[in-house]
């Protein structure tokens, strides 16, 4: 059974269907990609999964439980974490404090001490050099790592990563991709929204493609790359040359 299941989810903003009957799933221990052109509804779907937006139709299940009606923080406490396309760091706190705040949020289950979890995430994401700087003065690349680390200290089972490579240069992107792959190898489920197709093809075991709010293809990277509908969604429908 997949760890995260989105079944037949629709979201309406006024008269606009931002997401229409979308269905996808993501497993623990692997990176699942969610790609699509701008405005396809990827971030909206993320907002539905973590509870920031309510769907007009459809269900979200996590570890077999229906979590559609639960609040955002309750979902997080079940082990669902996310990063944001537009960075959402606590700008007036230092990088270390950002991690501490997240690690200190109480949970029912017993976990390692705050300091241990924070140290592990600092080590894993390489935050040492800028640990004591204020979060709104670090570079975008550093900030992406801090958001990831901040999500990791909550010990999530599923991470929703929203365009983590945007604003990063190629070496930073590669480094980030390796990190995600390592985390997945350690058992974390990752659902990755990303525009950098080479990154997606490299780290994802399965990919879903969203266009105009609908899932138009799902499969391995090779299958998705060969899918005509995907090609059309990205490149447009070929027009017959006038004869």
């Amino acid at each position: 059974m997949p760890l995260l299941e989105v079944a037949d989810v629709s979201v309406r903003f006024g008269g606009h269907m931002a997401v229409e009957a979308a269905t996808l799933s993501a497993d623990a221990g692997s990176v699942t990609g969610l790609i699509g052109p701008n405005g396809a509804g990827k971030t909206t779907l993320f907002n539905v999964i973590c509870g920031l937006v309510s769907p007009v139709h459809g269900r979200v299940r996590f570890d077999g439980d229906d979590i559609t009606g639960t609040s955002t923080h309750q979902r997080a406490r079940r082990g669902l974490a996310r990063t944001f396309q537009r960075l959402e760091l606590f700008g007036s706190l230092t990088v270390l404090e950002n991690l501490q705040v997240a690690a200190e949020i109480p949970r029912r289950e017993r976990r390692a001490p705050v300091a241990t979890r924070v140290d592990a995430a600092v080590e894993q994401c390489g935050l040492g050099p800028f640990l004591h700087r204020r979060a709104d003065v670090i570079t975008t690349g550093q900030a992406r790592l801090v958001e990831l680390a901040r999500a990791l200290v909550t010990e999530p089972r599923m991470l929703l990563a929203d365009e983590p490579a945007s604003g990063l240069d190629s070496s930073e992107t590669e480094h980030f991709g390796d990190l995600l792959a390592r985390l997945a190898a350690d058992g974390l489920g990752v659902l990755l929204v990303e525009h950098d197709v080479s990154l997606v093809m490299k780290v994802c075991s399965r990919i879903s493609v969203l266009d105009y709010g609908k899932v138009i293809a799902t499969g391995t990277p090779a299958e998705v790359r060969a899918d005509q509908r995907v090609v059309q969604a990205y490149l447009g429908v070929p027009v017959e040359a006038p004869t």
């Binding site: 974490a81 944001f84 606590f90 949020i105 909550t154």
Partner: peptide, 15 residues
């Protein structure tokens, strides 16, 4: 302080 900076991030972290 975190709630002041980003309520959305707080909620998605479980606060």
């Amino acid at each position: 302080q975190a709630m002041k900076d980003s309520p959305a991030a707080c909620a998605t972290l479980g606060m």
